[in-house]
Amino acid sequence: MNIFRMLGDLSHLISIFILLHKMQTSKSCSGVSFKSQVLYLVVYVFRYLDLFTNPFMSYYNTLMKIVFIASSAYTIYLMSTVFKPTHDPAIDTFKIEYLLGGSLVMALLFPPKWTFMEISWAFSIWLESVAILPQLFMVQRTGEAETITTHYIFALGAYRALYIPNWIWRYMFDKKAKLETIAVVAGLAQTLLYSDFFYIYWTKVMKGKKFQLP
């Protein structure tokens, strides 16, 4: 465990907290892409299958995996029941079939090993790298976003971005660790997808202005 990994995981937890807090206090999920949330649940379910198979890693590891699956399922539950009237499917129109299909193809083309577990792990990594697209697309369609929603997107993006210095750290100091090429490539791609958002977030939201596309 190094500082970047810790901050990354913390950032992920914070993003979940921000999203649930936004929905509970405003009694609304407007501006939140249901499709992105569904993709994240798929990501966690497929990646954390190792909860049942793998040798035990640590209490921290198990707890975090359960928290990510559970909070993701809870978010979808809230969005599809209590706050359903506040969700506007007309602006959440990104075609996620392409993201699911593309991730599956990538996982089948370059599996770390030819086993179901390894392919599902790779699938989840590729899918996570693009799961934010419906959300970013929605922001782009409306041309603006509530400040709280942008904090959520930022915290979620920072999580994967912070994994990059974590991998550099592991590469240099953690001699036992074998870096996962797929995770690194997908992680870089994921961070790249956020770069436009990060830029506007820094130049506008951090200066107290509303998130508005130019």
Binding site: H12, W121, A177, K178
Partner: peptide
């Protein structure tokens, strides 16, 4: 080198 990174990282 061990292969556990993919199960350790979240």
């Amino acid at each position: 080198k061990d292969d556990l990174v993919k199960h350790d990282e979240l």
